[in-house]
Amino acid sequence: MSEHWYMLTLVGRDRPGIVARITRALYEGGCHLGETSMMRLGGNFTVMMMVQYAGTAKALEQLVAGEADSLGLKLHVDRVEGGRQQAVEPDVRITVYGADRPGIVAHVTGALADAGLDILDLISDIGGSEEAPIYILHLEGRALQGIPALASALEIVKGEGVDAQLTPIETMVG
C-alpha cells in the first residue's frame, strides 16, 4: 500500500506527557513522523506533525482520537503534499520589537513582503509587564529582492515606533 503524508494538528490545554502519549499511539498504528513543531501558545498546547501513513485520513484520526479525547485536545487531520526533506535555506533573520499594540505583525510583514521577504519561520513572544507589554517578533526568511530592499523597508517601519534588527544568514558548510 502506498504511503501518504498528513498534517496532524492538536490543540488544547497543556499538561505533561501529551507528546509521548500521542506519538506512542501513532507509532503503534504504523505511522512514521516527519518534521514536527510543538509550541505553547498563550499557555495552550499546540502541535503540528507531518505524519506518513498508509491508510486514510479517517483511519489516522481514529488512531489518535482516543488519546486526544482523554487529553481534551482538538484533533485535525489533513492530507498534504510534501515529504521528509523540504528544507529551504533562509538568508536573513529579522527581529522586530516594540510596545505591544494591535497591527504590528500586519504592518511589518506587509512592508517586508512588498520588499521581497519570503517568511520561512516566524515566532512571536509577549514580554514586559502587564501594564506595558512588549511584542517581540522573530522572522527567518529569504530576501527575494536582496537584503538592502528589506533593510530599507525596516528603516521605514522603525520610524513608526518599533525597533528592528536585520542580520544576514550566511550558512557555513564545512
Partner: peptide, 11 residues
C-alpha cells in the same frame, strides 16, 4: 550562525 556539513546532508 547557521551551519551545514558535507557529512550531514540536507540539514
Amino acid at each position: 550562525g547557521r551551519e551545514g556539513c558535507m557529512s550531514v546532508p540536507d540539514y
